[in-house]
């Protein structure tokens, strides 16, 4: 197996809070290959954004402690100096945020902001940066790039802003793109356009993409592989088609069951997401799990590899059940 572009190993993120430290992320392993789109899916508050921010060291040092390794092309990013990280951010690894309305600085034109990123990483003259900026705006499908570049963020629509954010992210040809709920703030038709654009540009540039979402529909539309997160942990990993056909982990099954589909009743998961400050012992999903057995509340499940790219952190499910032959 070739070395992945990004490999997250034993990653923990712990916030300092008034009530003491709270560990919100505890991930054994998560990889993104070159030219691969990996979905990270889970309910709101399960720690997806915390994972994204820890990849680029964007958690404020006084608020969070990050442990483990984030290996990009063989180099561990955890613990790098701010100066080293600055060189990687925006050039090797780029990021797109959930709300394009607040991700741009409101008092500079989008063109200025785009050009500043280009010049920060590529140097060059103002004129070269401008030419490149116009190219990028055209690439992401903005009509009238010259006119758009002179606009302020509030003068553009949500979809336009997200397109431009993608232009900013791609401006320095990153190897890895982290997209944290890139379409959550947009309406459905715009969402489809933005996802298609992302997918098309990903193919064109051969980037690895970590696509964070709480929406399985987005995963189905865009991703090659998917990791399901629950309460700070990855509980299942699978090729997208396999997950939808035969979800392994009871949580994934619950999520898929709660997807409204024709001819099928809506079956939400009973119970609520556990409070990260007071996690239950053993499997974090056990209190809500219809398949739980007594050992589930005493033993912490590890990811079990079923082969064929499938794994799940549940001792109750077996390889045969997920359709992988041993």
């Amino acid at each position: 197996m070739p070395e992945p572009l990004l490999s997250i190993e034993q990653l923990t993120v712990t916030f300092r809070t008034e009530h003491g430290p709270v560990q919100v992320v505890d991930i054994e392993q998560l990889t993104v290959g070159r030219n691969e789109v990996v979905g990270l899916v889970g309910e709101s508050g399960c720690g997806k954004s915390s994972v994204a921010l820890s990849i680029l060291g964007l958690h404020p040092a006084h608020a969070a402690r990050v442990g483990g390794r984030v290996v990009l092309e063989g180099r561990n990013l955890v613990g790098l100096s701010e100066r080293e990280l600055q060189k990687i951010r925006g050039s090797k690894v780029a990021m797109i945020f959930q709300d394009p309305a607040t991700a741009f600085n409101p008092v500079f034109t989008v063109g200025e902001q785009l050009m500043r990123v280009i010049r920060t990483h590529k140097g060059g003259t103002q004129r070269q940066a401008r030419a490149r900026a116009l190219e990028l705006l055209e690439l992401v499908g903005m009509p009238d790039p010259a006119g758009v570049s002179c606009r302020y963020p509030h003068q553009l629509s949500g979809g336009q802003r997200q397109r431009i954010m993608i232009a900013v992210a791609l401006s320095c040809g990153p190897d890895l793109l982290i997209a944290d709920e890139p379409t959550t703030a947009l309406d459905v038709t715009i969402e489809a356009q933005i996802l298609d654009l992302l997918k098309q540009l990903q193919r064109q540039f051969g980037m690895g993409v970590l696509l964070i979402t709480h929406d399985l529909g987005v995963v189905a539309r865009t991703c090659d592989r998917v990791a399901v997160m629950y309460a700070g942990r990855v509980v299942e990993e699978a090729p997208v088609a396999d997950l939808f056909r035969r979800p392994a982990h009871p949580y994934s099954r619950g999520l898929l069951g709660s997807l409204p589909r024709r001819g099928q009743e809506l079956r939400p998961i009973g119970g609520t997401v556990p409070d990260l400050r007071h996690l239950p012992p053993g499997c974090r999903f056990a209190p809500r799990c219809p398949l739980a057995v007594p050992t589930c509340t005493t033993h912490d499940p590890k990811l079990i590899d079923f082969g064929s790219g499938r794994s799940a952190a549940c001792p109750v499910v077996h390889a045969e059940e997920v359709g992988v032959r041993d």
Partner: peptide
């Protein structure tokens, strides 16, 4: 604010 974090994510140097 969010846009400051976004600017940091783009590698904009601290002094800028």
């Amino acid at each position: 604010e969010d846009h400051i974090r976004a600017a940091r994510a783009m590698g904009i140097p601290n002094r800028t």
